[in-house]
Amino acid sequence: MSEIEFLNWVRGPGFQIAIIIFVAGVIIRFAEILLLGRKPNLAEAKGSEMRGGLCTIVSRSFPDKNTFQRSAFTEVSGWIFHGGLFITIFLFAPHILMFKDIIGFGWPALPTPVIDAMTVVTIIALLAILVHRINNRALRFISTKEDYFVWLITILPLITGYLAFHRIGMTAPTLLAIHILSVELLMVIFPFTKLMHAFTITLSRWYNGAISGYRGVES
């Protein structure tokens, strides 16, 4: 297989396979969750489920002071790497083209050097997060193989993207193909790992807020 053939494969059949697994997986996982249903609460309500649910979807991103102090690293690194992922994935011009090709519309991009810098920041944040996971007693204890695997699959597109952009180590088509392949790998494992939280976070935060909101507590 020539490198262009490799590139053509990841841009063609490879992408098709990945998007099929991704879309099907996400929809199936959502159906699995939602169709399980939830018994209506028979206790007299003290507050609104909807209001509580919606509030918590937003408010959980901003912890109270004590929680922040106790988990400052997790909070800050989490913000940085999620922000970094968002910027590098959604605000890089070539990526926007990809989304536009699929969903039919695009949006303005950030200047490339900003993306480049954010990539480095995000990679550093993810490396720090790994070190933290290994060093923190509770975290190390609860970490599973999946946690490390997902970490790897998450950082790979950043590293391969950085290498592809700067054309380091291999020829450009191979680097680009590896980058796209690493993203396809991410798409394939996405629905079946904790990566699903990117979608189900709204659900679980809503449930949390609704449960509390019903009792008149803003969670």
Binding site: R29, T74, K194, H197, T200
Partner: peptide, 21 residues
Amino acid sequence: VDSTVAAFFTSCVHCGMCAEA
């Protein structure tokens, strides 16, 4: 197991913040 349980477990990322709480 109901939809809340399923949504909760699906979303857990093992961040460890609950330990500190």
